[in-house]
Design a protein around this nucleic acid. Structure first.
Length: 419
RNA sequence: GUGGAUGUAGCUCAGUUGGGUAGAGCACCAGAUUGUGGCUCUGGGGGCCGUGGGUUCAAGUCCCAUCAUCCACCCCA
């Protein structure tokens, strides 16, 4: 029982002060590039009505059928901790009528997501995503811009060898034709498929295409790919998207069988693939979802976006030798020599802080020597030594912890030295 | 949900075929230096050996269960 008080729930992580710097770097540079591309941040609740995800993400998806944190609140409403970011943003768009303020709406978000999975390398029950969504335009340039944003973000972080895998699933019509054809193709070999794929065959046969099971791969080797069923418009859209990517120098590889596990994707579908994070190889993915807004009860507004996994980016970076920058020593630490100086030291502390200096003092009753050691460990640039003699003279001894030199100055001057 | 591996100090890990007050390195605290950090030396605090049961004269060590972590499957970020 007591153990529960000192153990975090399965699949969760504490991000300790030591690692926070890396997190901030990812978040800050994501915010930076999104703003540069004209996106604005949106924050939606961490929980939503369960129906939003059932409808938006798709009831047959793994996420909805077995990975959601769903519970009844005290008002007997079914609530779900968000497993992904797109559906909530769509809901917020409609609820706040953002689409009536002018299109396109370009939004980005960052925050925790929740999926009840079994944890392993790069997979947690609470994880964090960075994402963008563009509403209101079907232009292939939007698709290219969204993918380019992500690729440039990776480059800016120093992330290497990210492969952009690209496919097009087509519009509802194309998907319908493909589905029928695929259904016919797989009909005779259903019993050779894995258990889950036998279910997929009925619900969403397209998902069989990217199953990794060897038998399924074999069965699917010559299966009709979605791209072969694109109508004229969708095909043109796909070609233009590729052309825009080429034009901006974003490399990609076409992947006919890339399908992805969320039901809402239409046309463009993509994934960012990377090596070296265990069995997982995706640090993010996304696509176009031209029917989702309508599916959620809004007007037919096309959308396009992606989600990236913070933990997976971090994992990849550390595999590639990503180090935290050597922090420069700054700030000060007040060191007292003498029993009766606590009050003076405290006043000095607040005086210096009032003048914009980052400064601390000892609260552990340590010796002078130990206080200096603490100052060193804290990584400050200066130790401000206050002893009986300094007090008598109205001065402070400022010790440069890098140079090892020190200088006696009057209290007013000290601020100048410590800046 | 399925399979495999692993749980010993804050961290990384020793601990022999079951045998005696359970160890090391790092970290932490103190002293060597009662007004000076980093280097060095000396000392110190820290362990229900994941938890519960069992076998045995005797269990950190063997058996069972359970929980957790890691890895993989499934799927995804």
């Amino acid at each position: 029982m007591l153990r529960l008080l000192t153990t975090r729930p399965r699949g969760t992580k504490d991000v300790l002060p030591e690692e926070i710097e890396k997190w901030r770097r990812l978040e800050d540079s994501f915010r930076g590039i999104c703003e540069q591309y004209g996106f604005r941040e949106i924050r939606t609740p961490i929980f939503e009505h369960t129906e939003l995800f059932e409808r938006g993400v798709g009831a047959t998806t793994d996420i909805v059928s077995k990975e959601m944190y769903t519970f009844l609140d005290r008002g007997k409403r079914s609530i779900t901790l968000r497993p992904e970011g797109t559906a909530p943003v769509v809901r917020a768009l409609l609820e706040n009528n953002l689409h009536k303020l002018g299109l396109p709406q370009k939004l980005y978000y960052l925050g925790p997501m929740f999926r009840y999975d079994r944890p392993q390398a790069g997979r947690f029950r609470q994880f964090h995503q960075l994402g963008v969504e563009v509403f209101g335009s079907e232009e292939p340039a939007v698709d290219a811009e969204v993918m380019a944003l992500a690729m440039n973000y990776f480059t800016g972080l120093g992330l290497q060898d990210v492969e952009l895998h690209l496919n097009s699933l087509g519009c509802l019509k194309c998907r319908g034709n493909h589905r029928n054809e695929l259904y016919g193709f797989l009909k005779d070999s259903v019993n050779k498929l894995c258990k889950t794929c036998r279910e997929r065959f009925d619900n969403n046969p397209m998902r069989v295409l990217d199953c990794k099971n060897p038998d399924c791969r074999k069965a699917v080797r010559k299966a009709p790919a979605p791209v072969n069923f694109l109508c004229g418009e969708c095909l043109e859209h796909f070609h233009k998207t590729q052309d825009f990517l080429h034009a901006t120098g974003v490399d990609f590889v076409l992947d006919d069988y890339l399908v992805r596990g969320l039901d809402y994707y239409t046309r463009t579908s993509f994934e960012f693939i990377v090596k070296g994070i265990g069995a997982q190889n995706s640090i993010g993915g996304g696509g176009r979802y031209d029917e989702l807004v309508a599916e959620c009860g809004g007007p037919r507004i096309p959308g396009m976006g992606f989600g990236l996994g913070v933990e997976r980016i971090l994992l990849t970076l550390s595999g590639q030798g990503f180090r935290k920058e050597q922090s420069i020593r700054k700030g000060a630490y007040i060191v007292t020599a003498g029993e009766e100086l606590q009050r003076d030291a405290f006043i000095l502390l607040q005086f210096l802080r009032g003048n914009g200096i980052a400064v601390e003092k000892d609260y552990m009753g340590r010796s002078l020597r130990a206080q200096l050691k603490q100052a060193d460990r804290k990584g400050v640039r200066y130790a401000v030594i206050l002893g009986e003699e300094e007090k008598k003279r109205g001065t402070l001894l400022i010790r440069d912890m890098v140079e090892g030199t020190q200088k006696e100055v009057c209290q007013q001057e000290a601020v100048k030295y410590l800046m």
